[in-house]
């Protein structure tokens, strides 16, 4: 049995009929076509599906869409500006080669922005610890950590 759910996704109100068992990530990808949010493991471990729920990073594979009634969701598609100018954290990943295959990148960037919000003074050690819930199988994390350090500085400078 489906039920109505409404929320704001990337600043736009959306309304849909979903089954209660529809996960947020399924809703984003399959109903709204926002396929930037990835499903890497489906068991809450890899972090590829991270989005922001009311500004905080959460794993959208471990959340029902119906739980997000009336809430604000931001996905990776919602970070860049309308004219295509990248968000400072995306720009930092670009400049520091913070990705190889790119599969984990949306989750990494969303969590990186969350680290910047909570820990604007985060050093390398803190960033590595904060990435506990994000798995990358390509890079060895070195460039990701460098990108996040740089991205946090850029976000701080932008204010």
């Amino acid at each position: 049995m489906s039920t109505k759910v409404s929320m704001n996704v990337n600043g736009k109100p959306v309304l849909a009929d979903v089954e209660p068992r529809t996960l947020l990530v399924q809703y984003l990808r399959e109903h709204l076509g926002l396929t930037g949010t990835h499903v890497g493991c489906d068991t809450s471990q890899c972090g590829c599906c991270n989005v922001h729920l009311n500004g905080e990073a959460v794993k959208s594979c471990t959340l029902f869409a119906i739980q997000c009634e009336g809430q604000d969701i931001t996905t990776i598609e919602g970070l860049a500006e309308e004219d295509g100018t990248l968000h400072p954290m995306q720009q930092a990943f670009w400049e520091h080669h913070g990705l190889q295959c790119g599969f984990c990148t949306p989750g990494m960037v969303m969590v990186a922005c969350d680290i910047a919000r909570r820990r604007p003074d985060a050093d390398e050690k803190t960033i590595r610890h904060e990435l506990e819930g994000n798995i990358c199988r390509c890079t060895g994390y070195q460039h990701i950590v460098e990108a996040i350090e740089s991205g946090i500085k850029a976000m701080n400078a932008k204010g």
């Binding site: 809450s44 990073a57 969350d114 994000n134």
Partner: peptide, 9 residues
């Protein structure tokens, strides 16, 4: 417990 995203929920 868990990781930051898990602790948010």
């Amino acid at each position: 417990i868990g990781d930051p995203s898990v602790r948010h929920r």
